[in-house]
């Protein structure tokens, strides 16, 4: 199988472990990735929050390159890039004025027919049976909380064909490689995304909520498929640790890293050493010969003292 590949900026920088793990996994699955020539940034959040035309035209440049390169399918592993590319494609299809403007700017005709796929979809396409076949390492000792965030499931008309409120396509992938997942409540709650730098405090609070809920439901690891979610949950956990002394760190892995682990790919090649929150305890747990820990019966929590209706910003 041959596939166009749009890594996007993050995968060349802060999310390089996403890039490397993905390449390793696809090599093992005999999928050739053909990187887009001279691709440029999709504009990410910053384009669509400030300029409509930027948010359509920047991704459009890459769509045109893909067509020129003769690609029919384009893998955009970053959830944000995926969302921007598909949104732009959609907009160009529906809004004729916009299409004409973009064609004018890029001096090229916009054509349809390019299929953009994200990480989850490509695994589904390859087939969960195939993933199962390639499984070499038992990862059943750890329990994963699949975190979809926003852009994998929203907006509903362009995102994954999965349920926006309770998606389970990532769980299905993990189950196929023999992994265990937890049922939790913050699968699609926002991590604060682009506010990471300008409003670190907000991101910190949102991530704390997400991590707490994952841990409460027994997760050993949070699995993501978006570099933004990853940097917020992984890197910003350092801030959380600083501000909440009781916080128990939890590693955050890309879906491709976990799949890679199950295939027995070298940890280093999967980039498991560049996380802010150490992945060592997790890797040790996978390797440990001890039987999987029994699911502890959850002790009912004491009645919540903060029983009054929570109102206002500070509640």
């Amino acid at each position: 199988m041959k596939l166009g590949y749009y890594p996007g900026c993050s995968l060349n920088g802060t999310a390089k472990e996403f890039n490397s793990s993905l390449k390793e996994v696809f090599a093992a699955l005999n999928v050739d990735l053909e990187e887009l020539n001279d691709w440029s940034c999709c504009g990410a959040t910053s384009a669509h929050v400030t300029s409509h035309i930027l948010s359509v035209a920047l991704p459009a440049r890459n769509l045109l390159i893909a067509k020129k390169q003769g690609l029919n399918e384009l893998l955009a592993p970053c959830a944000a890039c995926y969302s921007r590319l598909v949104s732009s494609q959609q907009e160009l299809k529906l809004d004729e004025k916009m299409r004409m403007k973009v064609e004018d700017l890029l001096e090229e005709k916009v054509t349809n027919g390019l299929q953009i796929i994200n990480l989850i979809q490509i695994f589904q396409k390859i087939g969960l049976d195939k993933l199962k076949e390639k499984k070499q390492v038992d990862i059943s000792k750890i329990k994963a909380a699949c975190y979809y965030g926003c852009l994998l499931v929203r907006p509903v008309d362009i995102a994954l064909p999965d349920d926006m409120e309770s998606p389970d396509s990532m769980e299905a992938i993990i189950k196929s490689i023999g992994g265990k997942t937890v049922d939790w409540n913050f699968k699609t709650e926002c991590c604060g995304a682009a506010h990471s730098i300008a409003h670190t405090d907000i991101v910190e609070k949102l991530c704390k909520g997400i991590i707490d809920n994952a841990q409460k439901h027994g997760a050993d690891v949070i699995i993501v498929a978006c570099p933004m979610c990853h940097s917020n949950l992984d890197m910003r956990q350092l801030n959380i640790i600083k501000h909440y002394p009781d916080h128990k760190p939890i590693p955050v892995l890309y879906l491709s890293q976990l799949v890679g682990l199950s295939m027995g790919i070298d940890e280093k090649k999967l980039g498991l050493g560049v996380h802010y929150i150490s992945t060592k305890p997790l890797l040790e747990k996978i390797k440990s010969d001890a039987l999987p820990t029994e699911v502890k019966k959850e002790v009912p929590a004491p009645p919540v003292s903060n029983d009054k209706i929570k109102k206002g910003v500070e509640a």
């Binding site: 929203r154 604060g192 682009a194």
Partner: peptide
């Protein structure tokens, strides 16, 4: 400016 663009509202 605080809007994170998460689209929960839209959906």
């Amino acid at each position: 400016w605080l809007c994170a663009g998460c689209q929960t509202c839209t959906s």
